[in-house]
Design a protein around this nucleic acid. Structure first.
Lengths: 146, 146
DNA sequence: TTTGGATAGTTGCACAAACAACTATATGTC
DNA sequence: GACATATAGTTGTTTGTGCAACTATCCAAA
């Protein structure tokens, strides 16, 4: 019978995700301080396009764990910022393939460095093996619920 | 020198908080399925009022890790739902003390049970000692950045 | 070949978050 | 007491999220 392990006082942070909220806020502040005019959510879309350019919006939904309207609007805003371009698929006209602009390609290195720094700040006092356990637990949580 | 421990592929989930997003969504669905007409964010405010009723909005900001405008609007919406009432402090007229209504008091048991169930689903396959490590790491992250 | 169901994407609406600018009240110092 | 400063809360704007309803396209079965 699983772990009736959580006392009331403990469940709150898990649900509200205070840690990831804190990380995201710090990262956003660093982006702003660097004069980078993008949101964390926009960055999370770019992140997956840097890994593989030309994904469809639906693929971005799966990758970013967002629903279709959210991606529609993130892509809208990224297009306004001239960071991506929608290109209709030739083989299936329902599909938009999303491509990075040159301007967006230039952002990869700097923003990844900032993200790296942010995580090092967040985790600087945590031994690597405990980080690994934490990552694994969060992955299991995600797999259990997704 | 800290842990240059994160390879690119690993930092994404930490930043985006996929696990806590998944938990929150599942909890929201369960609230909806139970006919409970409240959001997770509203619930998180009620949560702290159940622990101690009559807190000020500023205290709720600190407790929920939200800024003042966010709390103003959450309290607005909770008031519309007849779940809390703003009462001007006698000693300091800048302060609103927020009190639960009878209707909100009735929600505590049911919603806490649902939250408990949700976390048990999320963590059912995770050994307790690993959960503890994960909680500690997340707490440290929060303390490092808050 | 038509038709019915699935899939990709968009739009409208309500709610929430972050930031800046604002009002009102309190407090400490001269 | 007057003034500067700090604190509590509100409002406006932009951005993002979740849901439902919608359009367009594809595909498979009759």
């Amino acid at each position: 019978m699983s772990n009736n392990h959580f006392k009331k006082g403990e469940l709150y942070s898990f649900i509200t995700g205070k840690a990831s909220t804190a990380i995201a806020r710090r990262l956003q502040k660093k982006f702003n301080a660097a004069g980078l005019n993008i949101t964390i959510e926009q960055w999370s879309v770019l992140y997956h396009l840097w890994k593989e350019d030309g994904r469809s919006q639906q693929q971005l939904c799966n990758a970013t764990f967002r629903d279709k309207p959210s991606i529609t609007r993130l892509v809208d805003n990224l297009e306004k910022l001239n960071l991506v371009k929608r290109v209709a698929s030739e083989s299936d006209r329902r599909i938009n393939l999303i491509y990075l602009t040159k301007q967006a390609q230039k952002l990869e290195e700097e923003t990844m460095q900032i993200a790296d720094d942010t995580l090092n700040e967040a985790l600087k006092t945590v031994p690597p093996e405990r980080i690994d356990v934490c990552k694994e637990v969060l992955q299991i949580v995600y797999d259990n619920l997704k």
